[in-house]
């Protein structure tokens, strides 16, 4: 998927410039609606000429580390601040993907970011969507960035 490199570059740029964390990408893969466990996901929907979803899935330790770095304070539990920070991460990633997909900015609309978390949950795939998930690691913790899009002619 040609968007894979953009996901990697956008994720590295956002983490290095906003959170001062260097993240390393792993091998991209297609996620098949597997259950996510002990995680939090930030989601932004895309609508218009390109439809789909941008999601970032973080393990709880990764989410706490990211939020702590974002806010400059220790964070111990998934709370409103963590959900807000992870939603904002998804928002920045989606904005970056939108800039690549729709440079003028009027053909694709982004939803407000949202966050979900829990012990075990699934996020359904968009039917007939092109999909790629890129895993990342930093400081011994991991997260994934997932893009599902369908371009309507």
């Amino acid at each position: 998927m040609e968007k894979t490199q953009h996901i990697i570059e956008a994720t590295q740029e956002i983490f290095s410039s906003m959170i001062m964390l260097e993240v390393s990408p792993g091998e991209p893969f297609v996620r098949r609606n597997e259950m996510l466990t002990g995680s939090i996901s930030g989601l932004v929907g895309l609508a218009g000429t390109t439809k789909g979803m941008l999601a970032i899935h973080l393990t709880k330790p990764a989410a706490l580390a990211v939020t702590g770095a974002f806010l400059g304070m220790e964070v111990n539990e998934i709370d409103e601040d963590v959900c807000d920070a992870i939603g904002e991460l998804a928002n920045m990633l989606a904005g970056s993907m939108k800039a690549a997909i729709d440079p003028k900015g009027s053909g694709v609309k982004l939803s407000m970011p949202s966050a979900i978390h829990g012990q075990e949950y699934a996020i359904d795939c968009l039917a007939r969507a092109e999909s790629v998930t890129v895993p990342f690691t930093f400081n011994g913790v991991s997260f994934m960035v997932e893009l599902q899009i369908r371009q309507d002619s």
Binding site: E13, S17, M18, N91, G95, K98, P103, K104, G105
Partner: peptide, 27 residues
Amino acid sequence: ISTETGADIIDEAKSYGAKGAVKKPFT
């Protein structure tokens, strides 16, 4: 200051008086 910095959106913002735009992520 937004993730939304496409030319059409920034042109619309400037038509209402915006003086500039900063893209997230920013330094």
